[in-house]
């Protein structure tokens, strides 16, 4: 066991048919860190995180949550993490309160704890006004917030969030940022994937950049930036196309 890493991925590999989506990912997320996983579309971020939380069986490698293997000892490992997957539906024919209560009961929490936390979470995330609206009728931002509430409800030691800031308006985004910052200050660990470099730069203590199924750069925020802006570092690592100014002249 590596005591100071809350979350460790070792040699994760995933192939779909012939395409290698994730090609040997090693990652150690230090306890108490705010870890950003960056990468262009199709880099394998979602695949990696899905394998790390038990949603997708890896072809090789392991994922350890506070020393517990997600695939060998799933019950213990899964009780320690809160997950917000991306592109996955919720049980959206329940209303917000019902969904959170359901989540709490599934996690085996005591009814009185559930009552207190659900009310407070809905209040903090400004979802109380939605009342009995079914989650399927929520806006995209509201869905993100209720999904985050589901991940937070059982007070996990580690949060794994896939694209928590996508499709979220600035007000909700600020609320989510605030909650996550306080969670890390209280000793929790967060790993999340994102495209929004500005948010990553503001929040994260550590960053990893993925491209083509591999980790191309990893370290503390300052190590990865190495004096540049994060955007420059990202483009340099991923290798973007540089505009010459002559294309699309017909536009």
């Amino acid at each position: 066991m590596i005591p100071d890493s809350a979350f460790a991925l070792q040699g994760l590999v995933k192939r779909f048919d012939t395409k290698v989506a994730v090609d040997g990912v090693d990652l150690a997320v230090p306890a108490g860190s705010f870890f950003g996983l960056l990468g262009p579309n199709g880099a394998g971020k979602t695949t990696t995180l899905s394998m790390a939380v038990g949603l997708l069986r890896p072809d090789a490698g392991r994922a350890l949550v506070l020393g517990h293997d997600v695939w060998r000892d799933p019950v213990r490992a899964k009780s320690l993490i809160g997950v917000m997957p991306d592109g996955v539906r919720l049980f959206d024919r329940l209303d917000g309160t019902e969904l959170l209560t359901y989540q709490g009961l599934l996690r085996g929490m005591a009814p009185d704890v559930i009552d207190a936390r659900v009310t407070e979470l809905l209040d903090v995330l400004a979802l109380t006004d939605a009342g009995r609206t079914l989650v399927i009728d929520y806006s995209a931002g509201m869905k993100k917030k209720i999904a985050l509430a589901c991940a937070l409800l059982h007070a996990p030691r580690l949060l794994v969030l896939d694209e928590p800031f996508e499709a979220v308006d600035p007000v909700s985004g600020a609320a989510i940022r605030d909650i996550l910052t306080r969670y890390v200050a209280g000793g929790g660990t967060v790993i999340f994937s994102s495209h929004v470099l500005e948010v990553v730069e503001r929040l994260c203590t550590h960053v990893a950049i993925m491209a083509n199924g591999r980790i191309s750069a990893v370290g503390s925020l300052d190590e990865v930036r190495a004096g540049r802006t994060l955007e420059d570092a990202f483009v340099a690592v991923v290798g973007g196309r540089v505009s010459t100014g002559s294309e699309l002249s017909w536009l």
Binding site: T101, G108, D115, V118, T128, D129, R132
Partner: peptide, 29 residues
């Protein structure tokens, strides 16, 4: 698309189960 914005009353767990007499466990949920 009817949006019901009636407010929620009562404790969440009690409301979730309504009158159903099911155990307050993952199974019951």
């Amino acid at each position: 698309g009817e949006v019901r914005t009636r407010t929620v009353t009562g404790a969440p767990v009690a409301r979730f189960f309504g009158r159903a007499r099911l155990p307050r466990t993952p199974y019951g949920a």
